[in-house]
Design a protein around this nucleic acid. Structure first.
Length: 532
RNA sequence: GGGCCCGUGGCCUAGUCUGGAUAAGGCACUGGCCUUCUAAGCCAGUGAGCCCGGGUUCAAAUCCCGGCGGGCCCGCCA
């Protein structure tokens, strides 16, 4: 049981018998208290009965203080009791561990066609997906991440043919050129697609080999952001293993015919599964993919742009017909620039690669401004950590459904709610611990400022739970800011080195903060630095 | 035209699921804090009643209905 749960149980044990004595059973609500109202609020506004204030307040002791105003009962935890509990839970490691869920989850994200470096809109997918995977893993699920690689569609055939035709250009440029004149290449693209669609193993193997080169280039940027995949699924496998046919067979009784093409009627909509020329659609292969997922995992989470909402709705509809209900999606809104939607034509595409290097460069400048004592190599290492962390943090701090208008100034603002802020407070803690030497006697009297920090630390389990269950990675970023901010206040008011009376206690608190931040950095995919 | 999402101080965001006590932060702005552990920090201040209009409720940023503004989708594309 985490410390906060323990305290809540104490409240229930002590308070609820009294409430029941007064006929109160339903309508009692309990939530985290607002600022200046203690730690937990028991709200009786929904119940008709009331309890005399004296009777409630008489329950108070050193562990719990009850105060009743109107129909609110505000409970404040005793600093010494609760703080000791929190520090103990960190010693045991129990604050950071969750019950194992015995449930396998597949998080599929990114899955972009590797026609060029990722732009920041696509990167939002990767960062959300990777962070959600990290959170769910921490929360106790068995999590696997996967990239779904298209190797048989129009785009990739154009990429393969284009890079052949314009050998001298870089591959993105070759693809662009080729796509610009796509009309004159209709036939060869269609031929290529037919080769793939017919299950020509040699052709597919060859495509795969060439696509891998482009894929690795794309993955390099993600590696910089500490994003790696557990596996890759190539779309062609659903042609090769015949599962597309199986899908159509299993849905046979629901299929309708449109001049040879097959579709399923869903309300007003027709969901096509086979073209009249007998070839399958991306959608059909996606069904096959999700059937495969449902066999190997208890839950599949797809990270998708909001443009895929209808596609996904149709997908779950058909999976439902097949009795599969273990598929859900996390949708995110697009990243646009001030000039509007990113498009190559308008020349306003911001690549992840550029953003990362700008961010690292700025971090380097900032470090040089403050630290003249560090050697080149160290400056570079720290700049790398800060720069990449800033990119991740700025993308993840917004709720996924929130549209983002990208702005260089904002993306490269290293003050306030940003990665350097949380990394800075961490470096401060590290610096204290580095200077702290020897141990002293532990003073178990906790001051409010110390307790505030520990209480913030003790929120870790419930924040992770909330972020995991609601698929809201931004909650972790928010929490990391609040926790760091609380530490900065502690840092101001509570000297560690030199205060003999409080030394050991504050060393322990500082360690606790640092350990909690280690957990958070891991969840956010940020690599911390002891000095910045 | 239909469907989905977003709309909170000058700008950006949390709170909306689970309705309740003075709407919480960041940026920007104003003033203050570096002879003690890193000032990418801290403290104080100015600034919104939550897009608009109805409704439900003792109580609405939060729930319901209708608008408005912005985004996305509405292929035998992926």
């Amino acid at each position: 049981m985490h410390p906060s749960e323990h305290m809540e149980q104490l409240i229930i044990d002590r308070l609820y018998p009294i409430l029941q004595k007064h006929g109160i059973r339903d309508g009692v609500r309990k939530y985290r208290a607002q600022k200046n109202f203690g730690d937990v609020t028991i709200d009786l506004q929904k119940v008709n009965e009331d309890v005399p204030a004296q009777e409630i307040e008489a329950l108070s002791d050193d562990i719990l203080t009850f105060k009743k105003t109107n129909k609110f009962i505000n409970v404040t935890y005793g600093n010494n009791y609760y703080c000791t509990l929190i520090l103990d839970s960190i010693d045991e490691g129990s604050l950071f561990t969750f019950e194992r869920k015995e449930k396998r989850i597949l998080v599929e994200h990114t899955s972009a066609n590797p026609t060029g470096p990722l732009h920041i809109g696509r990167a939002r997918n990767s960062i959300i997906g990777d962070t959600i995977a990290r959170i769910l893993r921490k929360y106790g699920f068995e999590v696997t991440t996967e990239y779904y690689m298209d190797d048989i569609g129009t785009q990739v055939e154009a990429l393969l043919l284009g890079t052949e035709k314009f050998k001298d250009d870089n591959y993105t440029e070759a693809y662009r050129k080729y796509f610009a004149e796509i009309d004159s290449h209709r036939e060869e693209v269609e031929n290529a697609m037919k080769m793939a669609e017919s299950g020509n193993e040699k052709f597919i193997a060859e495509s795969k080999k060439r696509l891998e080169v482009f894929l690795y280039d794309l993955l390099k940027d993600l590696e910089d952001l500490n994003i790696f995949f557990d596996g890759f699924t190539w779309e062609s496998r659903f042609i090769l293993d015949g599962s597309v046919k199986v899908v159509l067979d299993n849905l046979k009784e629901h299929l309708k015919d449109d001049e040879g093409a097959k579709y399923i009627q869903r309300g007003e909509d027709k969901i096509y599964l086979m073209r009249s020329n007998g070839t399958s659609l991306y959608f059909t292969r996606d069904i096959a993919y999700h059937i495969l997922k449902s066999r190997n995992y208890d839950l599949s989470i797809d990270v998708l742009g909001e443009d895929h909402k209808d596609h996904f709705k149709n997908l779950t509809y058909i999976l439902g017909i097949l009795g599969i209900h273990s598929t859900e999606a996390v949708f995110y809104s697009f990243v646009v620039t001030k000039k509007g939607k990113m498009s190559t034509r308008r020349g306003n595409v911001v690549t992840l690669r550029d953003l990362i290097s700008e961010s690292i460069e700025l971090a380097e400048d900032e470090i040089r401004k403050r630290r003249t004592d560090l050697d080149e190599k160290t400056v570079g290492e720290i700049a790398r950590k800060i720069g990449t962390a800033a990119v991740r943090y700025n993308m993840i701090k917004f709720a996924p459904e929130k549209p983002i208008t990208f702005d260089w100034d904002e993306a490269l603002n290293f003050e306030g709610e940003a990665a350097p802020f949380i990394m800075y407070s961490y470096a401060r803690a590290s610096s204290i611990l580095k200077k702290a030497s020897g141990s002293g006697t532990l003073n178990k009297q906790f001051l409010d400022r110390e307790a505030e920090l520990l209480k913030e630390i003790s929120r870790f389990p419930e924040v992770v739970k909330d972020a995991a269950e609601r698929r809201r990675p931004d909650r972790i970023a928010k929490y990391s800011y609040e926790l760091s901010s609380t530490f900065n206040q502690f840092y101001r008011d509570c000297p560690v080195i030199g205060d003999i009376e409080n030394y050991q206690k504050r060393v322990n608190i500082t360690k606790a903060f640092k350990l909690t931040m280690d957990q958070i950095f891991d969840l956010l995919g940020i690599i911390p630095s002891d000095k910045i």
